[in-house]
């Protein structure tokens, strides 16, 4: 067992963990952040995507000790004071949710993209979301949702 110190959704966390575990397992079981989904468990599907120092990663193939000293954001970290993030609102408005299993990961990749590039074109959106599989095939709604989200964020800043 090793001691892990990191910041998860803005809160400092100290845990004793078995270093052979992956990050998603610790997030779900130890921290009860079950918004992070386990899909393929081999870095293919993107369901377990979290932000690692602001960048999307597949938490199923991150050995947990890589989180040492890092900032991790899961879908639970997006809403502030009970208010949904504009990206989450946009996903609801666009109907970009079907079964919901891939949604947390897609929303986080969307956040990473919009944080870096507030007005992405279609190609940039497609590339940013290319590491996500949606078995309900709701891909076009993702595109609509990101366009709406970009407008919402711009309106808030204006």
């Amino acid at each position: 067992m090793q001691e892990l110190n990191c910041v998860v959704n803005g809160k400092e966390v100290t845990l004793r963990v078995d270093p052979t575990r992956n990050l998603v397992d610790v997030l779900r079981r130890d921290l009860k952040l079950t918004g992070v989904k386990v899909g393929c468990e081999e870095g293919e599907c993107g369901a377990c995507t979290v932000l690692f120092d602001g960048k999307p990663v597949n938490s199923c193939i991150i050995p947990v000790m890589k989180a040492q000293g890092r900032h991790v954001i899961t879908i639970e970290g997006l809403a502030q004071d009970g208010e949904l993030d504009p990206i989450q609102e946009a996903f609801i408005e666009a109907g970009a949710i079907q079964c919901g299993f891939c949604t947390p990961g897609v929303v986080l990749s969307a956040k990473a993209l919009l944080d870096e590039n507030p007005d992405p074109d279609k190609e940039e959106i497609c590339e940013a979301l290319s590491g996500h599989l949606c078995r309900c095939t709701g891909y076009l709604q993702f595109y609509d949702a990101l366009k709406i989200a970009a407008e919402k964020i711009a309106a808030r800043k204006a």
Partner: peptide, 9 residues
């Protein structure tokens, strides 16, 4: 290589 999530790591 891979996907954005893979390329970040």
């Amino acid at each position: 290589v891979g996907s954005p999530q893979i390329r970040n790591v």
